[in-house]
């Protein structure tokens, strides 16, 4: 069974790239402003976005870029695959540390002890997977790995196992890292290389390719 990457998106340094092409860029150095600008430009119309923590906003924007840009191959991804057979496998370095700190600060003042439930729910890194899954009603397998650096071997092996062992026919995979206004996202779509979607431009999923695309 050959697995191929049918589309990929990167977000870093105030810029969103779709398959290597710059599609949104901002002069704003503030990630909050940049994410809000991108949300507007992509015309996402999903008010819950504003309630998400920065890690979830980042992963959500990268995924929405893949799935919603008109004429991009990814826009048909959800139609080509059964929602209960789409897995989401993400990873990062900082876990949910950025939000953990915000929450920790909110509970450190014992005289004004009013912790925010809306912040607390984001003190786990895999919540970003939930946000993506909820938006698109995806109900397949999911996993979130925390590692020192981008681990192409882990992602490739785990994805291949899911396609072999679990009820997986497609996957949204990658790296979503956010901490203290430093961020980077690399999300890619994996599908089986069937005749209907096979195309000379699609490349086989392997560690070398992933490391090249991540750079």
């Amino acid at each position: 069974m050959e697995l191929i990457i049918t589309s990929y998106c990167k977000i870093k340094r105030n810029t969103i790239y779709l398959e290597g092409n710059k599609i949104i860029s901002s002069n704003s150095e503030n990630p909050s402003y940049f994410f809000a600008e991108a949300y507007k430009t992509l015309e996402l119309n999903y008010p819950k976005f504003h309630k998400m923590d920065m890690l979830s906003k980042l992963g959500f924007l990268a995924t929405e870029t893949l799935l919603s840009i008109p004429k991009a191959f990814g826009t048909e991804f959800l139609l080509r695959n059964n929602l209960n057979q789409i897995s989401i496998i993400l990873s990062n370095h900082s876990s949910s540390l950025d939000t953990d700190r915000i929450y920790q600060k909110s509970i450190s003042n014992k005289d004004q002890y009013l912790p925010s439930p809306a912040t607390f729910v984001y003190t786990l890194p895999n919540i970003v997977i939930g946000e993506i899954a909820i938006k698109h009603k995806i109900t397949g397998e999911n996993a979130f790995f925390v590692s020192e650096k981008f681990d192409a071997e882990l992602l490739v092996n785990y994805t291949q196992e899911l396609f072999k062992e679990a009820n997986t026919n497609a996957a949204i995979c990658g790296w979503v890292d956010y901490d203290d206004a430093n961020y980077e996202a690399f999300i890619y779509l994996v599908e089986k290389a069937t005749d209907s979607i096979k195309n000379a431009n699609f490349k086989a999923l392997n560690q070398t390719l992933l490391n090249q695309l991540f750079l």
């Binding site: 912790p115 925010s116 439930p117 809306a118």
Partner: peptide, 13 residues
Amino acid sequence: SIDALELIVLLEK
């Protein structure tokens, strides 16, 4: 439901 909890916090705050 999370908003409901936030409204409880609002009343207290």
